[in-house]
Computed example of a mutant assay.
Amino acid sequence: MNVLRKILFPFAILYGFITSIRNFLFDRGILKSTSFEIPVIAVGNLSVGGTGKTPQIEYLIRLLSNKYKVATLSRGYKRKSEGFVLADGTSNAEILGDEPFQFYQKFPKIQVAVDANRTNGITQLLSQTEKPQIVLLDDAYQHRKVKAGFYILLTSYGDLYADDFMLPTGNLRESRSGANRANIIVVTKSPKDLSDQKQEEIRLKLNLNCSQQIYFTFIDYDDAIYNKEEKIVVNEIKTEGKVLLAGIAKPKPFFDYLKNENDECLTYPDHHHFSDSDLNEIHNKANGKKIITTEKDYVRLKDSKLVSQLYYLPIKSTFINQHQNFDATVLEYVKKNSES
């Protein structure tokens, strides 16, 4: 914890008090939460920063979309549009935001919508002629104006909420007790070889209640990079000089997976909108070499001047064990709460 964050400790206490009062009012029904007749699954976290929400949403899409009509609803962070937007053939990352646009491109059979007002967003989705049977709420754990039927809370292995503190001293958006709302807690970005003993230690540290389940996942990188026309096996480009580019919250694992000593790593803020000046700088530094970026950044850059040398590396969330139990729990909730 740096000196400035220590100085701001009194503000963290105040912020924690305010969020606790807000949660108390929602818990007691003094502030209104809206429920819906279809299954609504909220995925989010207690902290700011990357915990792997996008690959977790994509896991749920793959799990559910072959059996049900699925819609995702996101805020659409840093998009240039306003209000409710349902993705269609005219949509791009500027209209939807990078992550929703990624969902739209990868999963053409689902509905993808954005709206900062999640209650209005779900209402609008259910007013469509082809209304969804399930809504997945992206990054909506603190959006308590909607009462989701099922909550999945993510926490990073290297930054557990049990070890964190309230903003601005720490990174928590609300107190650790907010974890009690979760049906499932997923410890993301874990080591692939995490032992049963270490899993049990973390389970005890997080102090789950008797009704909660815990699972451990790791980020599984693809063995190839892609662009609009080409696929190249990662091992074939590991040793060649290239530019690695990331505008995500925690890019180190991405860099570590691909880089060698001759590579240049360019880091930008999460959800960064690349300006002409940025593009020129990247183009000049690449000097004809391959530029490899994250899938989320690629959707913002694929129509830029970098396209001829631009590739992306897909990732997915993989369970260390017991993924069948996770799948069964989610499917049981959906089946029980689906309209007949």
Rank of each mutant, 00 (worst) to 15 (best):
L8Y: 05
L8D: 12
F17D: 01
F17L: 14
N23M: 05
F24N: 12
I30G: 01
L31M: 14
T34I: 10
T34C: 03
P39Y: 12
P39F: 11
G49H: 09
T51E: 09
K53H: 08
L60R: 02
L60D: 03
L63F: 04
A71C: 10
L73F: 10
L73W: 10
K78I: 04
R79F: 02
S81I: 09
S81C: 06
E82F: 11
L86V: 14
L86F: 01
D88C: 10
S91I: 07
A93L: 01
E94D: 15
F103P: 04
Q105Y: 06
Q111H: 09
V112R: 04
T123E: 15
Q124H: 10
S127K: 15
T129D: 13
E130H: 12
Q133F: 04
L137K: 07
R144D: 01
V146Y: 06
K147W: 00
G149V: 08
L153V: 06
T155Y: 04
Y157F: 15
L160T: 13
D163R: 12
M166Q: 14
M166G: 02
M166F: 02
T169G: 00
E174G: 08
S175Y: 01
A179F: 02
T188P: 05
P191Q: 10
N207P: 02
F218W: 11
I219D: 02
A224D: 06
A224K: 12
V233P: 05
I237R: 09
I237S: 03
I237D: 01
I237E: 00
E240T: 15
L245N: 06
L245F: 12
A249N: 05
A249H: 09
K252H: 06
Y257S: 00
K259V: 00
D263W: 01
E264K: 14
D278C: 04
A286I: 12
N287R: 12
G288W: 04
K289L: 12
K289D: 05
I291L: 06
T293D: 12
Y298W: 15
L306E: 04
Q309Y: 05
Q309W: 03
L310A: 04
D327K: 14
A328G: 02
L331P: 05
K336E: 13
